[in-house]
Amino acid sequence: MSKLGARSVIAVPYIWLLLFFLVPFIIVFKISFAEMQYSIPPYTELVEFVDEVLTINLNIGNYYYLIDDSLYAKAYLSSVRIAFFATIGALLIGYPMAYAIARADANTRNALLMMVMLPSWTSFLIRIYAWVGILKNNGLINNGLMSIGIIDEPIALLNTELAVYIGIVYAYLPFMVLPIYTNLVKLDNSLLEASADLGCPPWKTFLTVTLPLSKAGIIAGSMLVFIPSVGEFVIPEMLGGAETLMIGKVLWQEFFNNRDWPVASAVAIVMLLLLLVPITFFHRYQSRELEA
C-alpha cells in the first residue's frame, strides 16, 4: 500500500478514537477535581486567571466525599458483588449451552447460535421490561403461584437483588455463550479421543482437557458480562427498586438529579480504576484475537 494511503487509513479511525474516546476520559478526570457551581457549565475551572495570576484550583473534595459518605463505598461493593455472582450465574447457564452447541453438527450449530443471538438483537430495554411484568406482585409468577395455591399472598420478587441477578444473567447470557462457543468449536476432537485412548474417563477429560483449553473463552465471556454489569444502570433501575444500590445508578442520580457533575466524574473515575484490572485482562485476550 502506498505510504500516504496507508497513513490516512490509520489516521482517520485513530484520530476519531483519540478525540471521542481518549480525550473524554481526560476531561472526566479533570472535572473530577473541579467544584460544583450553579452555572453553565456547572463546574469550576481548574486553571484560572484571577487578577492576572494563574491559579490552579485542584479540589480533591469530591474524592474525599466519596470516602466520607459510606453510600458510595456500599454502592461500589454491592455493584462488584452483584456483577460477580451474576457472571458466575451466566457462566453456569452459558457454558453448558455453548458446549452443547459446539457438539452439534454444523447446520444445527448455526441455527442454535442464531437462536442464542436473536434476543440480543431486540431491544435491551424491552427485554428487561418483560421481566417487570413477570416478577411484579401481580405479575405472572405470583399470579400463577397463587392460582395453584402454593402461596396466599404475593412474594416480593420485583425490586429485589434477585430480580437484578435475573436481569443481568438474562441480558448478558449471549455474551457469555458466544466467546466460549467460539473457543470450544475450535477444539480438536482428536485431543478428546487421545485423552480417552490414554484411559481418561469423559468427566475427567472434560476437567483436564476441555475446560483448560476453553479458558480463554471463559475469561472473555466473563469479562464481557462482568465489566458492563458493574456499571449497569437500566437493570437495577427497573428491576432493583430503591433498595438495590449499584454504582451506575448512583452516577446517574448524581448527574441527572443532583446535577453534581464533579462528583459524578469522581464516581466514574473510581469505577474506571476499579475496572482497570478486568479491562486490561479482557484487552489482552481480545488484542490477541484481533492481531493473531
Partner: peptide
C-alpha cells in the same frame, strides 16, 4: 497497542462512563 486498546475498550466500557465522558467532552 494504544490503537487496539481504544478499539477493544468500548466493548466492555460501562455505558454510564462512556455517556458521561462524551457529554463532558
Amino acid at each position: 497497542t494504544a490503537f487496539t486498546s481504544m478499539i477493544t475498550a468500548p466493548l466492555v466500557m460501562p455505558e454510564v462512563i462512556t455517556g458521561l465522558s462524551l457529554l463532558l467532552l
